[in-house]
Amino acid sequence: MSESISPDVTVDSRGAACPGPLMDLIGKIKKADAGTVFELQTNDSSSSHDVPEWVEKAGHELLDVVEHGDEEYWSIFVETRE
């Protein structure tokens, strides 16, 4: 599915430990319009669970979580809602 997702904004949080990646995403989403598609890149394993949990609570849509096994990071795709 991720092959067809072209994000409007890519947030590269690789190298940042939790809560860095989630806070990086929250900071960007705060300033974004509804309907913006984000790709959050993280190599922090706990973020791959924590970020989807926040996305659900905040009422945005989790489009996909893709694990790039060879490069050891995850891409978390999120679309903002009103």
């Binding site: 939790c18 809560p19 989630l22 806070m23 929250i26 924590d50 949990e53 926040w54």
Partner: peptide, 10 residues
């Protein structure tokens, strides 16, 4: 606190 626990450092 912004995330799922009360401090960034677990």
């Amino acid at each position: 606190y912004p995330i799922q626990r009360i401090h960034g450092l677990a």
